[in-house]
Design a protein around this nucleic acid. Structure first.
Lengths: 377, 377
DNA sequence: TTCATGTATGAATCGAATC
DNA sequence: GGATTCGATTCATACATGA
């Protein structure tokens, strides 16, 4: 078993695989992740999922418009002196990760714009070969309260093999099935972790950055086989372990905070392998195609300056560059200006406003339908 | 003009702005982008949009920091050398970009997983401060034909200011309007460039990676003002120039391929600028002319003695002749009394205090809007 | 029980001008 | 340059409360 010299091993000049009995399966290694990984043998892990500190570098306190306080990530483990310090830390854990991964294993890392560019460059430098970058589009992100930037509504994952020519596992058909018979894309719409799933103690969240199980579910289903060994060097409250158990994968974690370790063990203990019907519930729905009026302006379907009227041509308004309408001194969205000219409390601008199109007088909604048709796969 | 020492410039210790007459507006500079940028004065550009080469194999497009040409990378290239060469090239053009950007200017870069992590890390190292990473989610991407990875369905843009404390332009309200009254998020769904928009010659596309105008439209509408100078160091077939002309922004391009320059000039020549009224965008209150509460009292919009309450009528205060409020022994501005009655550290009196107006219960802000409309030219 | 309403909150690099 | 003042700013979801 496993010690025989198979054709594949000879061709790959790979050493004999490490027997699973020598690995601390189903255990959370205490302490610093680099030291913990050092205790593992070479080429023994099938997949690593890493959620390292993001190095957020937050400024002062932040309040919502209603005056309530935003509970930020201020934990000591997210603090680094400089980019150089963070890079050194990143290179160190990536080197250990590379040593313990099998030649046909793969690496996942998740991050935000604060750290992901540094991590991505470092892992390329270390010899990893990027297979995809995946965008987790959050269905329900925190808004930008001060109106100073775009709402930070996504995080980025990198999926990489051991090298340009290295093999890796990708369950293409499973992904296609999960995505209603269309190829799974590099952008995934998933909700953030909350509700029942969020671990709480005394009314407070146990970990500030607990990841949703749906995210790990898709990662593991896509890029590991049943029985594979998955390592998470930043285990936290054990989402990776819980999902691994549910999907019949082996897991190993590294975590230095005792509070997190305890919560994770309790959680994983309670996790049950999923049956088929439960799997279906985990599937993500495809994002409903939603088109903002501004998109039609940006994409040239409706030119700025176009004059819109209502069906009976009693009212008119002109389109501006940002998709707002102008009627005398009245400006705003298609809905608010539609309401304004009628003196109505509200109005569906999509059906209220009309324009000349191909010889006919059509509601905006008809243009939106045409746009949607043109962008369908 | 422009050479006078204004209050603002003295306070900011900024040098005199560069007169636009000294800039090659509406021109495509021939040659290597680094050399071309070197011909531009310091602190003269409001925004840079850069679409650099994505891949090391496109070695022909690369130059060394000294501007000399890098021979095509052939069979013997080594991965480390290639990344290092690409990084050196990136650092070189970023350094020039930084020199010519105004202190309150901003930088946009677009890339894919092949290069964006290296570019992102380099621009952080150069002192740029990332404001957002933006995901361009392609509505109609190329499928993954071999079924070996996830469909690569997005590209990444980075938007960065000149530094952590630097100012920058963000037309928050215009973006919110463009997105049907919801904050614009960091993930943008836009179609790829095709159909009529795609430049072709003899049945073949002129440029392999022509960007859609809708993408540049959103970038420019969000982060530049009318009349701003936009530079594109990798001009290609001139999408940046065409959109700049349409939106009333000035543009400068750098492009070494004569074929692309010719196609770009022809295309931009044909582009039609939007007229003034269509160009107007929704102004945020920050940018709107300020109205003091006292002005509403002075001009009779709100009579001294009027009683204001909060929305739920828990608190009340009366208006005094000088525009101050009175609540028991508490007196002061609409903001400080609003904060005082709630025991809150701060309060926006404009939205907190309400009064009876034309049969309805309206916030002070609504009266301010009416006043502003009445005074508009 | 169901529905309507109110409140809490999530990896956030979140203000600008004047004194 | 630091402190102070003015006043601009939120989306989706979960859950508790009350009708």
């Amino acid at each position: 078993m496993g010690q025989l010299l198979t054709k594949e091993r000879i061709r790959a000049r790979a050493p004999a695989p490490v027997p699973k009995e020598l690995l601390p399966l189903g255990q959370i290694l205490d302490g610093d992740c680099i030291a913990a990984m050092r205790s593992l043998p070479d080429a023994s892990i099938d997949m690593i999922f890493a959620d390292p500190p993001y190095n957020l570098q937050l400024g002062g306190d932040l309040s919502r418009p209603d005056g309530s306080h935003v509970d930020a990530v201020t934990d000591h483990w997210d603090k680094f002196d400089s980019f150089a310090t963070y890079d050194a830390f990143t290179r160190a854990w990536l080197a250990e990760a590379r040593r313990i991964l099998k030649p046909d294993g793969s690496l996942w890392v998740i991050g935000s714009y604060h750290n992901i560019f540094r991590v991505g460059a470092s892992l390329q430098d270390a010899g990893f070969w990027i297979l995809n970058d995946i965008v987790w589009r959050k269905a329900n992100p925190m808004p930008n309260f001060k109106g100073t930037r775009f709402t930070n509504a996504h995080e980025t994952l990198i999926w990489a093999s051991m090298g340009e020519k290295a093999k890796y596992t990708f369950n293409y058909t499973a992904m296609k099935t999960l995505n209603d018979e269309l190829q799974m894309r590099s952008d995934w719409v998933l909700p953030i972790c909350g509700g029942q799933e969020r671990l709480r103690k005394g009314g407070h969240k146990v970990h500030p950055t607990q990841k949703p199980e749906s995210l790990l579910y898709r990662v593991m289903l896509a890029t590991t086989k049943k029985g594979d060994v998955v390592l998470d060097p930043f285990f936290g409250t054990g989402t990776t372990g819980a999902v691994a158990k549910r999907l019949g994968r082996e897991w190993i974690g590294c975590e230095r905070e005792g509070l997190y370790r305890d919560a994770a063990l309790e959680r994983i203990e309670a996790a049950l392998p999923l049956d088929e019907s439960a799997l279906k519930i985990m599937q993500s729905k495809r994002a409903a195609p939603k088109v903002a009026f501004g998109t039609l302006v940006e994409t040239g379907w409706i030119a700025p300056g176009t004059v819109l009227t209502d069906k009976k041509r009693r009212f008119s308004a002109s389109v501006r560059a940002d998709g707002s309408l102008l009627n005398g001194t009245l400006t705003g969205s298609i809905h608010s200006v539609g309401a304004g000219v009628q003196g109505a409390p509200s109005c569906n601008g999509w059906t209220f406003w009309h324009l000349e199109h191909q010889g006919g007088w059509k509601p905006l909604d008809a243009i939106r339908q045409l746009y949607l048709l043109s962008t369908e796969p």
